[in-house]
Design a protein around this nucleic acid. Structure first.
Lengths: 225, 225
DNA sequence: GATGATTTGTACGTATGTATA
DNA sequence: ATATACATACGTACAAATCAT
């Protein structure tokens, strides 16, 4: 799932990936203390790889270090989360614009299929499934820009807010809205309409931002102590 | 200069900053081997902080790791550099758009002053000075978006390409072009014209990309081994 | 406010793996 | 191809700082 350390061997990178996944999946809630020896025990390694992993996670922004007091899973204020979504909006919109011009034929086909799957999930009222398809659709568009730097940046940001956006599709109404927005985006991309693809993706993510911040206000407080 | 690790104490972060600076300044050329013991000696610390620093630099993208063979200063192919500039263009353009709406009065004033300084440097034919002012102007616009996530992302990318864009203003003609583009950008921002600010900043960085890649084709080859 | 316990930060030793002759 | 040299990767020990009592 996580693409964080540019795939190599090494215990530190392995530990880094596993912690990153647990954070993204919400198993490690924001504000959770990350004790080096505990983690070392949990992954059956010494403290050294754990320390290196935590340092990497800190530079990724998934973890926050406090001087001589160890690491915490990063938490965000509502304002910070909002800024994050704004940044993601800018990046994904850029990705969508480039995707409109650069998508290969098979990629274009897959984009259409994913969107169709989204419709089925929506009509079935399957929230989990829609969320999964939604993720894949966005991933397809991001990858479709064919610019590794942009892709990496965008996915990095998405990973950082992953644990904060779980409740995105709680309301069924938001799913219908989301699908309608996806339609505009997908159609624009397939029509190679760069301006519309950019604009629609941007407003789509602004809408998602509002949907999220409405639901998750209480997490934000850093429960440091 | 470098803002890499979110300012804390600790030798690892100190070493990280210093190495990052040396890379950005070109003292450590792309492809240079980063020997742990050598660096440890140079900074008068043990290998541990150096290792942690290198791991951080690797996740920042300034350094690449080869499995069980240590770290190298990251180098880029012309294609990768191009993609990098494209990504920077998207980000800075977004910053410019937000800056047009969010700049405070003192910030707006400073922006005008910086641009005026650029004109003086250009008229004096002072390449070094123009390059410095150029840097400050871009930094002012980036900071002016008032979105920490966007700012951090953009500056991170700029740092990664810093050592590759040193020759940007070799040709005096490029300075004149650059200044003219800056004029369009600054005027748009000061007029709160979001569309123009975005468009002009984007094309400005595309132009800079071309200017750079024309000059620096040979560095790109990864001189591994 | 001082002392003890816990945890991070740094240093160093050993083993494994890669490159060279 | 085998062996040697060498640097990295991991583990462990010590020191310093923070938190709790």
């Amino acid at each position: 799932m996580t693409a964080a350390p540019r795939g190599r061997g090494g215990l530190a990178d392995e530990v880094c990936r596993r912690i990153a996944d647990e954070i993204a999946l919400g198993l490690l809630a924001p504000g959770t203390r990350l004790d080096e020896v505990t983690l070392a025990g949990r992954f059956a390694v010494s403290r050294t790889p754990v320390r290196e992993a935590l340092k990497q996670l800190a530079t990724m922004g998934l973890v926050v270090y406090r001087r001589n007091r160890g690491a915490l899973v990063a938490s965000m204020t509502p304002a910070e989360l909002d800024q994050m979504f704004e940044a993601i909006g800018e990046l994904e919109a850029a990705c969508a614009r480039h995707a409109a011009l650069r998508l290969t034929e098979p990629e274009r086909q897959r984009l259409g299929e994913l969107h169709a799957q989204g419709r089925l999930a929506m009509q079935a009222g399957d929230v989990e499934r829609y969320a999964a398809v939604n993720l894949e659709l966005h991933a397809a568009i991001i990858a479709g820009c064919h610019n590794p730097a942009l892709i990496e940046l965008t996915n990095g940001l998405r990973e950082r807010v992953a644990s904060f956006r779980r409740t995105q599709f709680r309301h069924i109404e938001r799913i219908a809205e989301s699908y309608a927005e996806h339609t505009a985006i997908v159609e624009a991309i397939l029509a190679r309409d760069v301006v519309t693809a950019y604009r629609e993706m941007r407003s789509h993510l602004l809408a998602a931002r509002n949907a999220t911040s409405r639901v998750a206000p209480q997490w934000a407080t850093p429960q440091s102590k």
